[in-house]
């Protein structure tokens, strides 16, 4: 009981701080200096129509590299913590319904296609590597819901992930020699503003980020899925839905 009162007092203090902040908050009328610079020079320097993509990939590219590294570390720690012990018995699963199997057979390719579209067009329209990667991982969720015992090849995921990470850093280093600095997108010519092949290296970098984030999120999902699936636990009647 005393704990709850203490928690309540703590929250009231926090609420007081928030109230003061809210009262003194003045809604800005103009962009601050950094944002105004990005808005004015982003189009000519980077050549990307989507300014958020320009900032994520080029201006703050180092942040993105760190972020992808954090995701990689998370995936490694997860595989360490959720290591399977072999002794558990077979897991029996109800066969999923006809509706779900048909829907996933029809929809999953299109979901993957949408994910690829979103990260290829990241510099033109809303979207990009993170969104596309998350959409691809959601497609994997649908696959796993249809067939909970499905094995996802972790070797393939690891290969795609490390290859895209390696190429990403390599292109970043190429920016030091061929353009202004690490992860500078002006290695390639800027192209026509607003077309698919524009903004120099940015679309390629964003595609690599998309592949890396997609495989990392998929790896994370399969880790949690494997926790429930003991080794060799596949039942014959579930094999039918596997020709996706």
């Amino acid at each position: 009981m005393i704990k709850k009162i203490f928690a309540f007092l703590l929250l009231i203090a926090l609420a007081g701080v928030f109230l003061v902040v809210l009262q003194n908050y003045e809604t800005p009328e103009e962009l601050n200096l950094t944002a105004a610079y990005y808005a004015e020079h982003g189009a000519e320097e980077v050549g990307a129509a989507n300014l958020v993509s320009a900032i994520v990939v080029t201006y703050r590219g180092l942040d993105t590299l760190g972020e992808v590294t954090i995701l990689f570390l998370t995936a490694s720690i997860l595989s360490f913590f959720l290591k399977q012990r072999e002794e558990r018995g077979k897991r029996s699963v109800r066969a999923s319904s006809e509706l779900l199997r048909t829907a996933s057979a029809v929809l999953v390719p299109f979901i993957f296609l949408l994910g690829a579209y979103v990260f290829i067009n990241g510099h033109l329209s809303p979207g990009g590597g993170f969104q596309g990667g998350a959409i691809i991982a959601s497609g994997l969720v649908l696959l796993l819901l249809t067939d909970p015992l499905r094995k996802v090849s972790s070797r393939l995921l690891a290969r795609v992930e490390s290859a895209s990470g390696f190429i990403y850093v390599g292109l970043g280093i190429a920016g030091i020699f061929l353009a202004g600095g690490f992860l500078d997108s002006r290695v390639l010519p800027a192209g026509t503003f607003g077309t698919l092949l524009s903004a120099g290296l940015l679309p390629i970098l964003y595609i690599l980020i998309g592949l890396k984030v997609g495989t990392e999120l998929s790896g994370l999902l399969t880790r949690f899925q494997e926790v429930q699936v003991p080794d060799g636990g596949d039942s014959p009647d579930l094999k039918k839905g596997e020709n996706v």
Binding site: L31, A35, A36, A39, E40, L51, V52, V56, E67, L71
Partner: peptide, 20 residues
């Protein structure tokens, strides 16, 4: 353009923050 759009920097930060 600067008088027509919202600030893109916090959006870029939140984008990575959600994934993390």
């Amino acid at each position: 353009v600067g008088s027509l759009i919202v600030d893109p920097v916090p959006q870029a930060l939140v984008l990575t923050a959600i994934v993390i």
